[in-house]
Amino acid sequence: MNTLMVNSINQHMDEIIERWIKRMKEEKGERFFHFMPEHLVEKTSREFAELMTTNIQEKATIDADKINDFTEKIVRFGWAIKFVNKAIDNFSNVVFELLEEHEIITNENLRGFITLFSNWIDPLRESIIDAYSSEWERTVSLQKIALQELSASLIPVVEKISVMPLVGTIDTERAKLIMENLLEGVVSQRAEVVLLDITGVPVVDTMVAHHIIQAADAVRLVGAKCMLVGIRPEIAQTIVALGINLQEFTTKSTLQRGMQAALAMTNRAIVEVEAQ
């Protein structure tokens, strides 16, 4: 039974892949099969079909390296775990239906083939999803590290004035990194005024405000002044509604206005010079 099934799948692999691609294109919210180049869809589909048949032979083992390589690729392509699960289901259903059409699966041997499919698909599904989850966690972790490194730098703009643009959600871990970079930067750059730009922070709640206040207090302890800039109208409303006290801050709506105020604090100003 197993040999007959393997030979039939290998014989009709092109038809199986064609039917599988068609079903994947019909999935709700599907983007990969519609927007990727045809040659890439074809290549990825064949790799998936090859992966799905790695353990179909009797006593065959699952190729962990092949699974890891494929899951790394589909995570990069943006496949969701729900989509991966649906891909496995669709492939299994296409194979089952094709074997029925060619009368390899009949009423007489149906129970045996159901057991065979279960022994084939279930462990493969578990291995693929486990590998996918691990790869996804690794990718998210790397992205988080990259975001932390990119969005917590103190940038010297002019002498005595530095800017720290904050991007994304600020949690406790990021707040600690911001504090460390801020203090080290203030000392090494000999900054007198620091502008914390929250234009790229989507939400300012009590916890985020607490972290910002802590950072400002730390800056004052090393002899510099801290200014909060990039306060959008919706952020201002949230701050007022939450009763967050920012009275000890100098606040400005934009980075440009913040720079003008910072220059004034350091006894400088932007002066227009007429062309000679």
Rank of each mutant, 00 (worst) to 15 (best):
V140R: 09
F83L: 05
N55F: 01
I88S: 04
I161C: 05
E42T: 15
I62V: 02
H211Q: 08
V167K: 14
P165V: 12
Q256I: 02
N93C: 13
V94C: 05
T206E: 00
G29L: 10
Q256F: 07
M164T: 11
I74R: 03
I178K: 01
G112D: 15
M5E: 06
M52G: 11
V229I: 14
A275M: 10
L182R: 00
P233L: 11
I17Y: 05
A236H: 02
G185H: 08
L228C: 05
G243V: 08
G243P: 06
W136Q: 10
L99R: 08
A215L: 10
Q260S: 14
I244D: 06
A275Q: 11
I16P: 03
R257A: 11
S118Q: 14
A60F: 03
T250G: 07
S188Y: 13
E15G: 01
A264T: 15
V186G: 06
S153Y: 02
K144F: 02
L150M: 14
I16Y: 01
I235V: 13
L98H: 13
M1A: 13
M179H: 03
N245F: 07
V186T: 14
I121H: 01
V95N: 01
L166T: 06
S118Y: 05
R190N: 14
G258R: 03
M265D: 15
D89H: 11
I67Y: 00
G200I: 04
T199G: 05
E180D: 13
V201H: 04
I88H: 06
V158T: 12
A209R: 07
S92I: 10
A49L: 09
Q57A: 09
P202L: 04
L195H: 10
N93D: 15
L246D: 01
E42V: 12
K176A: 09
I105Y: 09
V157T: 12
V201Y: 00
K160P: 03
S253G: 14
S153Q: 15
I270C: 04
S141L: 04
K22I: 12
R125E: 05
E100V: 12
I231T: 07
L124M: 12
N7Y: 03
Q143C: 01
M265A: 15
D122Y: 07
N7E: 15
N10Y: 03
L98D: 14
I145M: 08
L142I: 02
S127K: 05
M1Q: 08
T266V: 15
L255Y: 00
K22L: 12
L246A: 03
D14I: 13
M1W: 06
S151P: 00
D197T: 15
H102R: 11
E108Y: 02
A80I: 07
D217R: 15
T44Q: 09
T254C: 05
K43Y: 11
M227A: 13
D197H: 09
G230D: 06
T71Y: 01
G168F: 06
V229P: 06
R19A: 13
I74K: 00
V94Q: 05
H34W: 11
I212H: 02
V219D: 10
M179T: 09
A60M: 05
